[in-house]
Design a protein around this nucleic acid. Structure first.
Lengths: 107, 107
DNA sequence: TGTCTATTTAACTAAATGGCTAAATTGAAG
DNA sequence: CTTCAATTTAGCCATTTAGTTAAATAGACA
């Protein structure tokens, strides 16, 4: 598997994408906070965190008892680079590129 | 599953990402050409194409006997939008020049 | 030391995934 | 209307994935 496929695989799950979104929105957080916000068990979250870490999407650091997780910008940049590399494809026929680039949020 | 997770899931496979890359590089192609370039069986490719189509990443059109596939720009744009939405994350700490320019007093 | 809290690892199960071969479908051509 | 070519669908099987509960690990502190 290529690195990029690995990155996509890590994000190809609601729980994991949710964790990433949350870490990006609220910054570094301990595993326990992520468990508290989720409907699934602690061990399940722990395993998702491991998958995200092994895919290079998040960094782990220890603070006493707790483990703090944060998104690694490099991983996000890899996706951004890929989209930019193929920009002519999603740009094609879409005449609002400028608007997109200047807007703050989408979805 | 959110639409975005579905998109990532569709790209979370070497064969499928390869198909997408190839369609973006060389444009619309019949299934047979994609099979010819791959190491796995026709039926396997066919199923991957179905997954990509159901995820909205490619469009299918019929030309006589053959089915032609092409990347749908909208799907790529969805990913591009997501990366743009979180741009501050992958930009942070990676663009030193930008960081310098944004600092008022430092030397 | 012993215990409490935070988190991960282990063991297990059900469901999903991805490959194969064989059969079915669909359009073109004789 | 028969046959050929292109492609998909149908079964089948092995592997991976994501969840669970129970047990293990690691740090903080009386």
């Amino acid at each position: 598997m290529t690195t990029l496929v690995n990155t996509f695989a890590a994000l190809a799950d609601d729980t994991r994408l949710g964790i990433i979104e949350r870490l990006m929105a609220d910054g570094e957080q301990p595993a326990g906070d992520l468990v508290a916000r989720s409907t699934i068990s602690g061990p399940a979250i722990s395993r998702h965190l491991k998958i995200l870490r092994e895919a290079g999407l998040i960094a782990q650091r220890t603070d006493g008892n707790r483990r703090l997780y944060a998104v690694r910008p490099e991983a996000m940049q890899a996706i951004a680079n890929w989209t930019m590399d193929h920009r002519r494809f999603w740009e094609a026929g879409l005449d609002r590129l400028d608007a997109m680039l200047s807007e703050e949020s989408h979805d």
